[in-house]
């Protein structure tokens, strides 16, 4: 066993006992290589990120649609369609009885959704028309 270890250590020259030295870091194949490597990895992946971010726009171009990013975004926070208002009105009537009227609808931002919604709900129920 011992002679095997010795043979292996001799085979790989100066690695015996893990002598610690900062000296190899300053060689070309030390710090400069590490920094260059990190830069190449980031460059490649940042280019991939830029490409992916523009992929939807590229797709629209390929498919020949004129406005690329726009139709995707407004789709969600668009004005409530008539159908939606009818549903809301029906829900309001079911909850508060006839006589309740929907005066205004508005898309809530995510931040408004929890507290503001609760506040509005309490405000509305505080003066429920009988």
């Amino acid at each position: 066993m011992i002679h095997l270890l010795a043979a292996a250590a001799a085979e790989t020259a100066e690695t015996e006992g893990f002598s610690f030295s900062l000296e190899p870091l300053w060689h070309d194949q030390g710090l400069p290589l590490a920094i260059m490597g990190m830069v190449v990895v980031f460059c490649a992946l940042i280019t991939v990120v830029i490409f992916i971010s523009n992929l939807p726009r590229l797709m629209a171009l390929i498919e020949g649609k004129p406005a690329p990013a726009k139709p995707a975004k407004p789709a969600a926070p668009a004005e409530d369609p008539d159908e939606m208002i009818a549903v809301i009105a029906a829900a309001v009537e079911a909850a508060l009885g006839p006589g309740a009227r929907v005066i205004h609808t508005q898309q809530l931002t995510p931040r408004e959704l929890s507290w503001a919604q609760q506040g509005r709900f309490e405000h509305q129920t505080s003066h429920k028309p009988r």
Partner: peptide, 24 residues
């Protein structure tokens, strides 16, 4: 980018191995 950042482990270990006397 997170996948790129994690590669710092590769290059720091490379430097660590160099200081311990491994060849590049």
């Amino acid at each position: 980018l997170l996948g790129a950042a994690a590669q710092v482990g590769v290059f720091l270990t490379f430097l660590g191995a160099l200081t311990l006397g491994f060849t590049p």
